[in-house]
Design a protein around this nucleic acid. Structure first.
Length: 248
DNA sequence: GCATTAACACGTA
DNA sequence: TACGTGTTAATGC
């Protein structure tokens, strides 16, 4: 799938496809565990899930948000509007991630597109319940603070990745970011992502990503699997630096 | 020199 | 069959 483009969809059709979450899916909504019983009861009653097809755009720049969103399974990406200028993928959104609170808090339209890179299950909490939790639940606010704090760390890391010139290091650090255990607890040891998708995320060709992955596998940091990457040494990825001089 | 695109073979879901 | 991976060749900055 090329950068940008993809299927169009109204929020109405999303609403029509919404269903309650299964017990297993609810268990994957980690912030629920922090809530008090009555808060959790209301949140669970409000949560809905939708299946988003590959290429579908879940959030479109300029549209008003209606829900706080989380990835149950699959993979999304956050990007700018390709019609405005060069298409830029800002970040991948893996399982376990919850996002969109910024637009809800500011009560402003989306500033990014959120598009499914492949078939993805997305959960949504209505903005009314989101604001109710924000107004009443200290555990929920604590979770939010924690999430913001971790996000800030990711932001700094992203700046650092941008300054790295070595392609292998860029791939390593980008992978490490996607394996963030607090922001993306749903990823586990295996990240389901194709080398093509990783190329869009890092800003490299598929062939160069393939080469970088093999180099990282050689170092024992990861294991390449069909349609994904298993991380064996997260710290090694985070600290990855360009190999200094072979014999010159 | 290094990364990119294009092209192709091959293996897997 | 459709898709993802591994690899090579030609091209560009």
């Amino acid at each position: 799938m090329p950068e940008g483009g993809g299927a169009s969809m109204s929020s109405n059709s999303l609403r029509a496809r919404a269903r309650p979450l299964s017990a297993a899916e609810l268990a994957d909504v980690h912030w629920l565990r922090a809530l008090r019983a009555e808060e959790r009861e209301r949140a669970v009653g409000d949560l809905r899930a939708v299946e988003v097809a590959a290429g579908e755009i879940l959030c479109r720049i300029g549209r008003p948000p209606t829900h706080w969103l989380g990835v149950i399974d699959g993979l999304l990406k956050m990007s700018n509007d390709s019609s405005v200028g060069a298409p830029i993928t800002f970040t991948g959104v893996p399982p376990g991630a919850w996002f969109g609170e910024g637009t809800l808090l500011k009560r402003e339209p989306y500033r990014y597109n959120i598009q499914a890179l492949r078939a993805t299950t997305v959960a949504g909490l209505s903005q009314e319940t989101f604001h109710w939790l924000l107004d009443t639940s200290i555990p929920f606010n604590r979770f939010m603070l924690h999430q913001f704090n971790e996000r800030l760390g990711q932001f700094i890391a992203a700046r650092e990745i941008d300054r790295l010139t070595d392609a292998d290091s860029r791939v390593a650090r980008s992978l490490a970011a996607l394996f963030h255990p607090v922001l993306y607890p749903g990823v586990g040891g295996l990240l389901r992502i194709t080398q093509q998708e990783l190329g869009y995320l890092v800003g490299l060709s598929r062939q160069r990503v393939n080469e970088a992955l093999h180099a990282l596998q050689e170092k024992g940091c990861i294991r390449i699997e069909y349609g994904g990457v298993r991380v064996l040494d997260l710290e090694g990825l985070r600290r990855h630096v360009a190999r200094t001089g072979e014999a010159s």
